[in-house]
């Protein structure tokens, strides 16, 4: 177990270093932020002065060296645009992203998984087919449309919920549902396929032969066996929820990291983008690691370390 952990940790560090290098060079390939910072009337000399004040006039490798040195000290630098430490900007946005991801995961998991199981058990029945259609429809609706539709219905026509922004728990409902709907469909489909797969196995037939009721069969036997694909999907979905909330955050003016990322990419705020990407890479690596550990808890046949 210890050796396994050490190896995975080593892999994680290599992956992080790779992401760091990639994001540094890819961003600089996309162009120069200086032009976005100065007014149109700025002369070439003004532009040069701005570039020098940002340190962007140095050779690329020198900048890269300085960047690695900063990273080693966990110094993420200062935003070009806002002129405050990147770490402060991310820290102020992270709680909103976590709230939204949490809300969306609640919606997705606690509706999606039972729905998937139910659809598997009721396979072939008209109502299950109907629901499958609804689930697919929910997944296919573009958020910029369904989000605005929700705002119109629940905030403008009926003033039940605040239309946008962050504030109380009521503000969280619509964005969570909008974001959760996408993942809900994924959870429902994976749970359904996985349960169907289990349903065709011998132990299910013997259990049924022994007279075990469907409810008990699902609760006691199926769920645990069918949960491995759901766990892998959950790890992927959580990293997606953290990174992929861009449109939902834009529509609902939710001040999370997704919105910050888009704004920073558009304004070429390199250091903020770097910070967010590194955070995303770290979370993804961590979650995959956690999923691996969970597998072994759910299924003792999966031995960590690969030796038998």
């Amino acid at each position: 177990m210890g050796r396994y952990l050490a190896r995975r940790l080593g892999q994680a560090l290599v992956a992080l270093f790779g992401v760091m290098t990639l994001i540094f060079f890819v961003q600089r390939l996309t162009g120069d932020p200086t032009y976005l910072l100065v007014p149109e009337t700025a002369t070439q000399a003004d532009i040069e002065a701005m570039r020098a004040s940002l340190g962007l006039d140095r050779p690329l490798l020198v900048q890269y060296g300085a960047f690695l040195a900063d990273m080693a000290r966990l110094d993420f630098g200062r935003s070009y645009i806002q002129n405050v430490p990147v770490i402060d900007i991310i820290a102020s946005r992270l709680p909103y992203t976590l709230q939204l991801a949490g809300g969306a995961l609640l919606v997705a998991f606690f509706i999606g998984v039972p729905l998937g199981v139910w659809m598997a058990v009721r396979r072939g029945h008209a109502e299950a087919k109907g629901f499958m259609g609804l689930v697919l429809a929910a997944q296919s609706m573009p958020t910029f449309w369904s989000g605005i539709l929700m705002i119109m219905v629940f905030a403008v026509w009926n003033q039940w919920l605040p239309p946008s922004g962050a504030g109380g728990w009521k503000n969280l409902i619509m964005p969570s549902v909008a974001l959760g709907l996408l993942s809900m469909a994924t959870f429902a489909r994976v749970a359904r396929t996985s349960v169907l797969d289990e349903l065709s196995k011998d132990y299910v037939r013997s259990a049924r032969a022994r007279g075990v009721t469907t409810g008990r069969l699902v609760r006691r036997h199926l769920l645990r066996n069918a949960s491995i694909p759901v766990i892998s999907i959950a790890a992927m979905e959580v990293s997606q929820l953290l990174a992929g909330a861009v449109i939902v955050e834009t529509v609902f003016a939710w001040p999370g990291l997704g919105l910050l990322t888009v704004q920073s990419i558009v304004s070429r705020d390199f250091l903020v983008v770097q910070g967010v990407v590194l955070l995303g890479a770290f979370v993804t690596i961590l979650l995959n690691f956690a999923a691996d550990l969970l597998y072994s808890l759910v299924d003792p046949r999966i031995r960590l370390g690969g030796t038998s």
């Binding site: 910029f144 605005i148 403008v156 003033q159 239309p163 946008s164 922004g165 003016a253």
Partner: peptide, 17 residues
């Protein structure tokens, strides 16, 4: 407030927010 989407700004205005 920061509200990046124009449709949302319009909805906020219509909802009185």
């Amino acid at each position: 407030r920061a509200v990046p989407d124009a449709a949302t700004r319009l909805a906020n205005l219509q909802a009185g927010a």
